[in-house]
């Protein structure tokens, strides 16, 4: 019995050792970092990473997108990544143990997205243009709308915005991240969805109604290095925060914070 266990142990150690040496070898050729980023940055960061890789031969930026709260969990659980870009301060704070000095660099806000062909141009149909337009639309009978789960940043922002605007109806689904909400409204499965302004900009089949309580609907993005000391990670962060990054983010509808 003991013998078998030792053999099994040796196998495990052997396999692990192979893995480590393999990584070290490839590292001398191409330097690679993993960036964990909020779902809402999928388009912009993909573009920036491609641009960065083109400018810096032998670098590889691996991107992983999910809800910021999910990513914070994974980072705390020891995920091997070097950069964290969070869609909320709360999620960035949750990863504070590994991300020491994050910087707030973008802001975005949630809106009510409706199909571009839908007839909810509020100031057309209802006079005068009431302050709580979103509530008028969302509280209509048979208006099925969806949002992110309360636990993730886009859901928290949606909760604050609907509350401030006095929306009384309830969503028909609380999706685990904003990608999932966007997919369903783009597919036409709902009448409305609370997603980011930037998501609407990215989809020509959608248009948006802004919440009156813009302050409540706003979320800020922060970026920080996980476990300080990686030069490539630090350079990529300054690139993202720099003028090239700003250009891409602004074109996508984000507000760049200085």
């Amino acid at each position: 019995m003991m013998k078998k266990l030792i053999l099994a142990g040796a196998l495990v150690v052997g396999l692990t050792a192979c893995g480590t040496s393999g990584q070290a070898n490839s590292g001398s050729q191409t330097e690679s970092i993993t960036v964990m980023a909020a779902s809402s940055l999928t388009g912009t960061l993909t573009q920036l990473a491609t641009q960065y890789e083109a400018d810096h031969p032998n670098t590889k930026i691996v991107l992983n997108f999910a809800a910021s709260s999910t990513l914070a969990q994974q980072i705390n659980a020891g995920a091997p990544a070097q950069v964290f870009v969070s869609a909320s301060k709360k999620s960035m704070d949750a990863a504070a143990e590994r991300v020491k000095s994050p910087a707030i660099f973008l802001s975005n806000y949630v809106v009510l997205a409706v199909p571009a062909k839908a007839m909810y141009d509020p100031c057309f149909s209802v006079h005068p243009c009431l302050e709580s337009m979103t509530a008028n639309v969302m509280d209509q009978e048979n208006f099925d709308w969806i949002q992110c789960a309360h636990e993730v940043p886009c859901g928290a922002a949606a909760d604050k915005a609907t509350k401030a605007d006095g929306v009384t109806s309830k969503p028909v689904s609380l999706e685990p991240d904003v990608k999932s909400v966007v997919a369903k409204i783009v597919a036409g499965e709902a009448d409305g969805a609370i997603i980011y302004h930037t998501d609407v900009i990215a989809h020509s089949t959608l248009k948006e109604l802004a919440f009156t309580a813009t302050k409540d609907a706003t979320t800020t993005y922060s970026i920080g290095e996980i476990d300080a000391g990686n030069l490539l990670a630090e350079d990529f962060i300054s690139f993202v925060k720099g003028s090239e990054g700003s250009k891409v983010f602004e074109a996508a509808g984000f507000t760049v914070l200085k």
């Binding site: 969806i146 789960a149 969503p171 028909v172 689904s173 609380l174 685990p176 999932s180």
Partner: peptide, 11 residues
């Protein structure tokens, strides 16, 4: 999740 969504008490 893909087909039914996710709402407490319903899906």
């Amino acid at each position: 999740l893909t087909f039914a969504g996710s709402f407490p008490g319903v899906t």
